[in-house]
Each structure stands twice: as structure tokens, then as C-alpha cells.
Design a protein around this nucleic acid. Structure first.
Lengths: 186, 186
DNA sequence: CCGGGTTGGAACACTCGTGTTCCACTTTGG
DNA sequence: CCAAAGTGGAACACGAGTGTTCCAACCCGG
């Protein structure tokens, strides 16, 4: 039983990581990118890529797993269950922004079975928003799905702005927090 | 000299419109959609589609022109130069929302030379935001490009929400206006 | 030093979308 | 009613991406 999280050392593991990372970058740029281009970006031959991921869908699955894992880490670091929902949200946004291209993948849904923008029932974001409505830290006139959608939309804007390179991360985070906070406060 | 805007009547014009409209819908769903699928959606043969638009780029160009035209009409209807910038913005949002799938095309930039999210200098949106910063109806701590980005991001969210069909247009417009207004007010 | 593990390139067959040509059919306007 | 315009389908060549096989070269550990 070779689990997804094998011994992440040695040549094989290193090659595998390189391919997945390159795939994340390239897929974020163009969802229909050719596998040969991913291989080039990873610095490996196309043959090698196919050795690790026989079919395109296998690679997409691996990328999805990686994204989900990163998402989970972000949730942990943000300690979502501490303080009011709004405070938790203020910790969560910068963490999400660290996901980089994974944000693009989540937003454009190029990846299979990755939790799309607030569609999963076990999404911590859903629970967080529910809590925010209870503790009065969120605007009750906005539906939960709209609140979640707004957060994702602004996160995407923040990441795109950052990727363009015209504004510093500090400025982007500042404006992201300000916008989200004002929009969602009661 | 057969201009883009011919006598928009007769069989040819009707067929042409059907193809372009189908292309807008299909391209919004999948930017890499096959031309055969566009032809099917338009209710014409693939041969006929190629008769009107010899190459894929020709169709994309026509779709882009259509989008730009619709955008212009929305700008006119919103009477951007009347009242404060914030008032104009409140008229503009619902108009933009009427653009439907064209919003998706603008947002995902599948179309050539269509003014991407606030990248064009002659974009009325840029002028509007400049005015808003002058007349004090917009938050000065947010950069102009962030303000424009926020508007587009929320518009896209609104359209996607509407397209899902879980909320009425009235509710969506209500939440869109409330969110944008709160986020961008000083 | 040697042998297994790993790699990359060449070559191949296959699928799919594209763009083209040709021809028979239907519609429409004079 | 009849010719011209418009249409749709079949068939074709072509290119690009995919997935596979085979083999020579390389690296690293025992």
C-alpha cells in the first residue's frame, strides 16, 4: 500500500515534488497547459513525468491532494476556533494568501475533487461563517454563501495583485483585510 | 468594404448573431471549447460556422467586439457623469450584472483586445474611481486599482451566484450593492 | 568497481480539434 | 416558378498533445 505520503526523501520523492510544484505553477497560468511544458518547467523529461503520473488525470489528482494539504495547514495555523469569527478570519486571510498559485487552482477549479469555493459541507470556512453570524461579528443581511464568496473573491484579487508585482505584500494584505473587514462587518 | 456592423437583417445576419451568442455562452463555460460544440449550440453546422468565421481567432474577435459594444451600452445607461462617483457606481453595478456571460469573458480574458479588469487607460471605470477619490465618496486608503479590482471581483461573484440559480436577481443585486458600498466607502 | 535504480531522448500509434473542399439539399426573393 | 443564396454533411489533410515502448546514458551506494 503506497500511500500518498511516502518517505518524502530520496531521488524519487525529489523528482515527484519538482513535477507537482511545476504543475501547480503552470496549471495556474493555463489550465490546458501541455504536459511537455510542465516537464520542461520541472526540469525533467516528458518520459519521466509519465513514469510518475501515467495519465494527465493522475497529475491533476496529485496537484489536488497537494492543494488540499496546504489548505489544511493554513487552517491549522489560523487557529480558527479561537476568538470571535472575525478575529479568526483576520488570521485566516494572510494564511490563505500564502497559498499562492494554489489559490488560483482552487478558484478556477482546474483540479478534481478539490473543495470549490465553499461548496463542501465540512469546509471550516462554512463553520466559521456560521459562528460569525451567531457571535454577531458578521453582517446578517449577507447570506453565508455570499460572505464566503466575497472572501474568496477578495483573496483571488489579492493574489492576482501580488502576482502582478505592482504592490508589496504588505500593502496587498492591508487592503485585503480592510476591504473584507468593512464589507462583512455588521 | 463590409464593415463589422452591416445591415443586421436577413438570413446571414441572423445566423451570424446566433453563432456569436452561442460562442459567448460556450466560451464562458469553457475557454477551450471546440468549435463544433459552438456550432451545435448555435444550431448550425460546423461548415457554416467556418463560412462566417474562417479561423477561431475570427470568432474570438467578433465575440470581443460584441462584449465591448455591450460594455459601452452599459456605460451609457449608467450615466456615469451624473451625481457623485458613488452614486454612479450604484447605477453601474446592476447594469454590468446584465452583461451576463460577457462578464465571465471579461474576467477570464479569453477574448483578445477586450479591456481587461481596469487595464485600459480610457476605461470609464478608471475615470470614475479618480472622481470618487476627489469628491470624497471613496476610501482613500485603497489604491485605485484595488478599488476597481474589488468591483470586478464582486461583480464576478454576483454573476456566478446568479448563474447557480440559488438566489434571486433581486437578492444578488442587494448583496452586491451592500458589499461594494460598505467596502469602498471612506 | 560494478549493478540496480533512475533518467532522457527517439520513435511510434492514437485521438482530437482545425481548416478545407465538394456536393446535394432547402429556402427565398424576384 | 426558378435561379441564387444559404446551408449541412461527408471526407480529407494537417498539427498538436497524449500515452507507450525501447534503449543508451548516468549516478549512487554497497
Amino acid at each position: 500500500m503506497t500511500d500518498v505520503q511516502d518517505v518524502e526523501t530520496g531521488a524519487r520523492a525529489r523528482t515527484r515534488r519538482a513535477i507537482v510544484e511545476a504543475a501547480v505553477t503552470q496549471l495556474a497560468r493555463d489550465p490546458g497547459v501541455a504536459l511537455g511544458q510542465v516537464a520542461d518547467a520541472a526540469g525533467v523529461g516528458r518520459t519521466t513525468l509519465h513514469r510518475y503520473f501515467p495519465e494527465r488525470s493522475d497529475l491533476l489528482e496529485a496537484v489536488g491532494a497537494e492543494t488540499v494539504a496546504r489548505l489544511g495547514e493554513a487552517h491549522e495555523r489560523a487557529r480558527l476556533d479561537q476568538g470571535t469569527a472575525r478575529e479568526a478570519l483576520r488570521r485566516l486571510c494572510p494564511e490563505y494568501l500564502l497559498l499562492g498559485d494554489h489559490l488560483t487552482l482552487l478558484f478556477t477549479e482546474v483540479v478534481p475533487d478539490a473543495p470549490a469555493d465553499g461548496c463542501a459541507d465540512d469546509d471550516p470556512m462554512v463553520a466559521l461563517v456560521e459562528r460569525g453570524r451567531d457571535d454577531g461579528s458578521l453582517d446578517l443581511e449577507l447570506s453565508p454563501s455570499w460572505v464566503i464568496g466575497t472572501i474568496w473573491a477578495q483573496l483571488y484579487l489579492a493574489w492576482e495583485t501580488l502576482r502582478e508585482g505592482h504592490e508589496s505584500r504588505h500593502d496587498v494584505v492591508q487592503q485585503l483585510m480592510r476591504t473584507v473587514d468593512k464589507a462583512l462587518a455588521p
